[in-house]
Amino acid sequence: MADIVSAYWATPPVARTVSTLVFASSVAVYTGMVSMEPFLFHYMFLLKFPPGIHRLVTSFLVTGPQLGVIFDTYFLYTYLSQLEKTNSKFTRKEDLIWYLTFVGSFIIIINQLWTGAPIYLQALMIAMCYTAVQDARGQQAHFYVVTVPAQLMPYCLLLVNLMLAGWYSFQVGLTGIVAAHLHDFLTRLYPEFGNGVNLIPTPWFISYIMRTPHVQNTVYGSATVPPRLNEPRSGPLPDSWRSAGPGRRLG
């Protein structure tokens, strides 16, 4: 049991946290422990009092039914951990959080204008798959029992959605590719080929939240770490006074 717990806490923190939330929420919904209603999104919920702001997040926390709970959670963890550990675009945790925020927001907007879908996890998974394979072009990937070029993986997921869930699910999944491509264009394609800059850099406040307080990941969880003794500390004295050495009491 201790080995399982240690292995769990050793996984990438963002992928671990999101996948655990999705799995727990889906099990709770499909076993009848909680209602599906708080997980559904429509823009009208934002106009009520109190506004349903939580739905901007919960609408990404429910998988498909039955075996979808297992397979969707697995694919979600796989693609999210690839982005967190190996993707060159997300060298910092806050960059990945901003990616999820931007892509998720755009997925909601497109679906509200086009499909009217209330649940968006499938679209987000396809978006993450699209982003993950951009660095794997020319390589081969395994999709169930077949081997395909890595860059075709998100389109394979779209095809499975079409075959198993129909045209409506295909349209929802397609919004994920559109959102991921827009993010790739604004952060990579335009700066590289248009001699421009990253048009959607990670906001400073996300970096501030991620770095305050100091958090250290351990095999047993996360621990808050106080600033080191040699780190500069804020206080009422000027820097020149603090660097002069320990004070002496007079009298």
Rank of each mutant, 00 (worst) to 15 (best):
V5Y: 11
A7Q: 08
T11F: 11
P12Y: 10
P13Y: 14
P13I: 07
A15I: 07
A15H: 10
R16L: 08
T17N: 13
M33F: 13
M33S: 14
P38G: 00
Y43F: 10
Y43E: 01
M44A: 12
K48M: 09
F49M: 07
F49G: 02
P51A: 03
G52T: 01
G52N: 00
R55T: 02
R55E: 02
F60I: 05
F60K: 01
V62A: 11
G64D: 12
G68W: 02
V69K: 12
F71I: 12
D72L: 08
T73S: 11
Y74C: 00
F75R: 03
T78L: 04
Y79F: 15
S81I: 02
Q82G: 04
L83T: 07
L83W: 03
E84V: 10
T86K: 13
N87T: 07
N87F: 05
F90K: 03
R92A: 12
K93L: 10
L100Y: 10
S105A: 14
F106C: 03
N111S: 08
L113Q: 12
W114Q: 08
A117M: 07
P118I: 04
A123K: 05
M128Y: 07
T131Q: 07
Q134H: 10
Q134Y: 04
A136P: 15
H142V: 11
F143Q: 05
P149I: 01
Q151S: 14
L158Y: 00
L158I: 05
L159Q: 02
L164N: 11
A165Q: 13
F170L: 15
Q171E: 14
G173W: 01
A180Y: 07
H181D: 09
L186V: 13
L189C: 00
P191T: 05
F193R: 10
N198Y: 04
P201W: 03
P203V: 11
W204G: 15
F205H: 11
I206T: 04
S207F: 06
I209W: 06
M210H: 07
P213V: 03
H214V: 14
S222C: 11
N230V: 01
E231D: 13
P232M: 09
R233N: 08
S234H: 10
G235W: 11
W241Y: 13
G247V: 15
R248D: 02
